[in-house]
Amino acid sequence: MGELRVLYRKGSHHNVLFFTERCNSRCLMCSQPPRDLDDGYLIDDMLETIPLMDPDTRVLCITGGEPTILGWRLMEVMTSVARHLPDTALHMLSNGRAFAYKETAKAMSQSGIRDIMIGIPLYADVASLHNFVVQARYAFDQTLRGIMNLARFEVPVEIRFVIHRQTVARLVQTARFITRNLPFATQVALMGLETIGFTRTNVSVLWIDPWEYREALAEAVSVLAEAGMKVMIYNLPLCLMPQKLWPFAQRSISDWKTMYMPVCESCTLKSECAGFFASAPFKYSDHIRPLLAHPSEPAA
């Protein structure tokens, strides 16, 4: 029996180029635990697929693993995207560490892709905590240096913060740190936890009911918004956050991964809610409740 892999789905907003399973970090909550394999064939597939893609594709997402591990082969893919999909925006998820080297950051600015954004996680405002979360000793410095280098070469950066029990204590302070040190970032994404991969392995040290951190989330959002930064909340259902945060909440979870709970049936805001990962039944909040208000109505 042959194997069929779907490399690309036309018309989907979430076309993902999965680059590699390898990574130089090992985050406590990695949803895609890294494996040290020689998976260079993924790139060969990709280089064949890109010319066949619909040039109307709006967004392509590069993920992994850590795409920069591929070195110059990453550039090959980017050049191909620039050539065959000139109107497509590229969103790449990276831990940013490789951009601590100026040359790597510079290469990103020279890919020829017009609309590129690199999403880079920052899990704390202090080195020891960030390094613990990503399980890599010099990662904090490398990531920050990387973000600064990308800014130097005018490559747009999104800063991503995943909220869990280990990071939540410095959520607000990290927001403040970003406004002071990285005000040039294009946007900041504050994200709920997806309970798959390593998160399951470490669930007892990671899980926190989003209901518990709603106040901290609200404060972090206002710190960033007051400083004029663009903030987005991902992966959190509307009923777990104060209503004033609804305008920041995104319906981001990829369509094929979204689900809702039985109680959501009677919720009037279901269509605007990010819902849950398909993995959510493993562990989810006790505070899910259908909402009857509409976001355009003033807060009660």
Partner: peptide
């Protein structure tokens, strides 16, 4: 509760 393949906060 941290899986043993991960290092503790103190290590960092």
């Amino acid at each position: 509760g941290l899986n043993r393949s991960f290092k503790s906060p103190e290590f960092y």
